[in-house]
């Protein structure tokens, strides 16, 4: 029983002592958007349920979704979805062993951020009836 300190040793990785890096920020954003999208899908499912129940209940749910607060949540959800989608593709490339070097990871991160903004704008334009 030489190991008296068992279970009391400090644990890695001490995230808070590192200067935040671009790739770290993207990584945690993938998680945050994923959890946030759980809220979005709950709203969308409620809206579908209302559509299946009755016209009156649908009007109520639809009014909530298209209110100022609802609209803000929907646009935020749209960006979260676009980001999670683009960064998900980035993760699938990594899973295949591609693009893992630092320079590529930084640049693909930039592409993900730009792509998420472009897709969000397209999405908003679709809602506005441009497409």
């Amino acid at each position: 029983m030489a190991d008296v300190n068992r279970g009391k040793r400090p644990l890695s990785p001490h995230l808070s002592i590192y200067r935040p890096l671009w790739t770290m920020i993207l990584s945690i954003t993938h998680r945050i958007t994923g959890v946030g999208l759980a809220v979005s899908i709950t709203m969308i499912t409620w809206w579908f349920l209302a559509l299946a129940i009755s016209e009156e209940y649908f009007e109520y749910a639809n009014a909530a979704m298209t209110s100022v607060v609802g609209g803000f949540i929907l646009i935020a959800s749209l960006w979260a979805l676009a980001f999670h989608f683009c960064n998900g593709i980035r993760h699938l490339f990594w899973d295949a062993g591609k693009g893992l070097d630092l320079e590529t990871a930084y640049r693909s991160g930039l592409a993900v951020m730009a792509g998420s903004v472009v897709l969000t704008v397209i999405g908003v334009l679709v809602v506005a009836g441009v497409f």
């Binding site: 016209e55 649908f58 009007e59 639809n62 979704m65 298209t66 929907l74 999405g123 679709v126 809602v127």
Partner: peptide, 9 residues
């Protein structure tokens, strides 16, 4: 879905 938002019942 995006087209449906804002449409009537």
């Amino acid at each position: 879905l995006l087209r449906a938002i804002g449409s009537d019942f």
